[in-house]
Simulated scan of single mutants.
Amino acid sequence: MTLRVLQSVAVVCSAATLAFVLLQLAPGDPATALGEGVAPELRAAIRARYGLDDSIATQYGRWLWSLLRGDLGWSRDQQRPVAAVLADALPRSLVLMGCALSVSLMGGMLIGAWQGARAGSRRDRTTSTALLVLYSLPEFWVALLLLVVFAHQLHWLPATGITDEMSRYLTAREQLVDRVRHLVLPLTSLSLVGVAVFARYQRDAMQESMAQAFVRTARAKGLSESAVRRQAWRSALLPVITVTGLMLPALITGAVFVERVFAWPGMGYAMIRAIEARDYPVVSAGVILGSAVAAFGAALADIARDIADPRLRRP
């Protein structure tokens, strides 16, 4: 477990350094983001204020020292600490991604287990085709489609935001309903592809498990088909646990586009705003946070696999 944690820390540090270097090599800075009609003296003053004229090594050393002290920097666009920007945006993204992961996992496992128990049937082939089509659709396209159909044409659900502008005047129950209604479209956009991924892995694992000797033994002992399938399903959980850790980077990437489409004020929305404003401290902090979630999520998935199957534990 200690080795996995150290590996995760190394991954985060490498991602942070790479993000810093790439941002330094990217064209533009906060001074150029001001537009064309800004005096050269003002641009020079801004570069001097933030130390943008220093060498990359000097800027990296200053940035690294601040990071080690727990200082994520100052948001030049929002004029407040980067930690405050993350504190506002991160909980909203965690709600969206946590719900999306739960829906994807539960939906994918149920569909995949159902397919695996009926592998080769016409219903299995039809469902596999539908899931393959669903998997091929990018999240932002699905988000735009849902936005047009359910928000702008049918007017069933709100189009953007996390709450209604008048939510402060609603009762506690009405506020909860309002938040759920705003969550439906972003959650659906982010979950559909995940359901297809989990279903595919669960189906293959379930099909392999149903062909094992213990399934034939259970049937020979007279167990009901539902009991046999439950035992086979428990044996087919390991690939799904692995995919759960691998899905986190894709989930984070998808959340960036989905949050932008629905103006969900989370980390993805904050990152895109920071990129447009050349607010690189926010961008680098977001990269560090995203890589930390992905790395430690993969480590937790490995630990969960070891717990589920002791045979996988390293001596």
Score class of each variant (00 low, 15 high):
residue 218 A to K: 14
residue 166 M to D: 09
residue 205 A to G: 07
residue 178 D to C: 15
residue 131 L to K: 04
residue 260 R to I: 01
residue 130 A to P: 01
residue 48 A to Y: 04
residue 136 S to I: 13
residue 225 E to S: 08
residue 177 V to C: 11
residue 4 R to Y: 12
residue 206 M to V: 04
residue 74 W to S: 08
residue 259 E to W: 01
residue 40 P to C: 09
residue 14 S to K: 05
residue 215 V to R: 12
residue 266 G to D: 03
residue 178 D to G: 10
residue 1 M to V: 11
residue 184 V to H: 01
residue 267 M to G: 01
residue 314 R to W: 07
residue 103 V to C: 08
residue 59 Q to T: 10
residue 292 A to C: 05
residue 145 L to T: 13
residue 276 E to K: 07
residue 225 E to Y: 02
residue 10 A to E: 11
residue 276 E to S: 09
residue 143 A to Y: 02
residue 184 V to C: 06
residue 120 G to W: 09
residue 277 A to I: 03
residue 295 A to C: 04
residue 125 R to Q: 14
residue 236 A to S: 14
residue 5 V to L: 15
residue 261 V to G: 03
residue 236 A to E: 06
residue 309 D to T: 06
residue 121 S to D: 07
residue 1 M to G: 13
residue 16 A to R: 02
residue 160 T to A: 06
residue 145 L to C: 11
residue 169 Y to W: 07
residue 273 R to V: 00
residue 131 L to M: 09
residue 64 L to C: 10
residue 277 A to G: 02
residue 304 A to L: 12
residue 44 A to F: 03
residue 269 Y to D: 03
residue 249 P to T: 00
residue 193 V to F: 11
residue 239 P to F: 15
residue 33 A to I: 04
residue 17 T to W: 10
residue 246 L to W: 03
residue 30 P to D: 04
residue 188 T to Q: 12
residue 180 V to G: 06
residue 9 V to I: 13
residue 311 R to P: 00
residue 54 D to C: 02
residue 13 C to A: 15
residue 185 L to K: 06
residue 203 R to K: 13
residue 171 T to E: 05
residue 239 P to T: 12
residue 182 H to Q: 08
residue 253 T to P: 00
residue 49 R to H: 11
residue 195 V to N: 09
residue 148 V to Y: 13
residue 132 L to A: 15
residue 102 S to M: 12
residue 205 A to L: 08
residue 63 W to G: 08
